Every structure is written in structure tokens, then in C-alpha cells.
Simulated scan of single mutants.
Amino acid sequence: MVTNVMECKGVNKVFQGDGISTYALQDINVRFEEGELVAIVGPSGSGKSTLLSLLGALDLPTDGEILYGDSSIIKLNQKNLADFRFENIGFIFQQFHLLPTLTAIENVMSPLFSRKVSYDKKERAENLLIQVGLEDKFNSLPAQLSGGEQQRVAIARALVHEPSWLLADEPTGNLDTDTGEIIFNRLTTLNKEKGCGVIYVTHDHELASRADRIVEMKNGKIISDTRSEVHA
């Protein structure tokens, strides 16, 4: 499956509750090209995180298509969908979602535990932790790490199988300014050096302005899609 281009065609996401239908996304049509650095902005409840979850195959649309290359992921069964995520998507959550009983290196290796891969799992995890500046934290548990260190472990985990796309939901939202800057610089370095497409949700307009492209959402719709002035 070709995965260097992502596209939403007529995507809607509807949540049902108490007899009420709530449209989280309405008629989303958007295309992301190989190696782009894209910011998704908008007020709370605008559909940003929902869109990111659909792009990352963590959820499926109510209707419409999500294409990677010419292939629609909504036609995949659960096993093939899980395999697709493993091979192509790295997801970074605002809340880190590290496993509390595993060390930093074990958390990075965790997506690989049930997988057969062609490389040494521990060596790959060690190299990634070194790249994010945690060479002295291999055996530390999440509770022994600062918020910024936990987020760096989460980034290393997302990159362990070298995905085509890195999706980040408010990756600096729980961090102080200086630590957030370190995290964002790591994402942009990966984008430029590895050619990994990066799409990140943020409320920080200064952070958004540093992307190649800014997609703005409101009430479940895309209301603008522009190149950043810095990169235009």
C-alpha cells in the first residue's frame, strides 16, 4: 500500500447519544502530501483531534473515505487495520500514555512486543532514546521522569518502526515553554532529516506558524487551508 499521500474524501463523523446525533466532522475533503509539516488549529470542539484519530486509523468515519495512496483504509478488517497502523503511523498523545510498570526502553519497544521485525528491537529503542537525549534514562520508569522526558519517550515509541506519518495531538500542551520548544524542534528535525510527514494539532498560534501549512477548523469543518507565511 502506497502511504506517502493521505486524503479525506467527503468524511463525516457522527456521535450518537440520548437520541441526538452530533457531527464531530462534516464533509471533510483534504489531502496531505509526502513529507509535509502541517498544523491543525481551531477552538476546542472544532474536530481537530477527531480528524487526527481518523487519519491515524484509531477510529473510522461514519461515512466518506480515507485514502492512503489509492487504497481506502475503511475497507480493512481489524487485523489488517492494526497492521496498517503499525507499518505506517506513529501517534503522539498529549497525555503521553506510557505504561507505568515498564521502563523507558521497554515503553519504546512496546509496539514491537508481538511483532516480527528485521532489526534488533532493543538496539533500535536505545538509538531512539539517545536521539531524543535520554541516553541516561533507559531503565527509568515513567514516574521517575519529568513531563518533557516522558513526552520524549512517547516520541521515540512513535518512531520505533519508522512510520511514514507522525501524528501528534497537542504534543507540547502539557509542557512548559522551554521543554515544549525542545519537543517541537525534535519533531521538525525528524520531518526534515527523515522525510517523515508530521501533522500536529495545536492551540499555539506561534507553534502553528512554523509549519509548512496551516489547516484551520471550526464546528467540524475546515474553514481555511493555507501555506504558512514563513514557508510560502
Rank of each mutant, 00 (worst) to 15 (best):
L175P: 01
C196A: 02
G197K: 03
D204C: 02
D176Q: 04
N185K: 14
L190C: 05
N174P: 01
T189L: 13
V201Q: 06
N174K: 02
F184D: 05
N185H: 14
L207Y: 09
D178Y: 02
H205V: 11
N185T: 12
K192S: 14
I199G: 03
L175W: 02
A208M: 07
G180E: 06
L187A: 06
T172I: 00
E206S: 09
G180L: 04
N174V: 04
L175R: 04
D178H: 13
E181Y: 13
E181A: 15
G197I: 00
T177W: 05
N185F: 12
T179K: 06
L190K: 08
C196Q: 03
G180K: 03
G197F: 00
F184L: 15
R186P: 01
V198R: 04
Y200L: 13
L207E: 08
L207S: 08
I199T: 03
N191C: 10
E193M: 07
Y200R: 04
L175I: 03
E193Y: 03
I183Q: 13
L187P: 09
Y200V: 07
T177E: 12
V201F: 03
I182R: 11
T179R: 10
G180Y: 02
L190F: 15
E206R: 12
L187D: 07
E206W: 06
G173F: 04
T172P: 03
F184P: 06
L187N: 10
T177F: 10
H203C: 10
E181G: 14
E206I: 14
T172V: 00
L190T: 10
T202N: 08
L175Q: 03
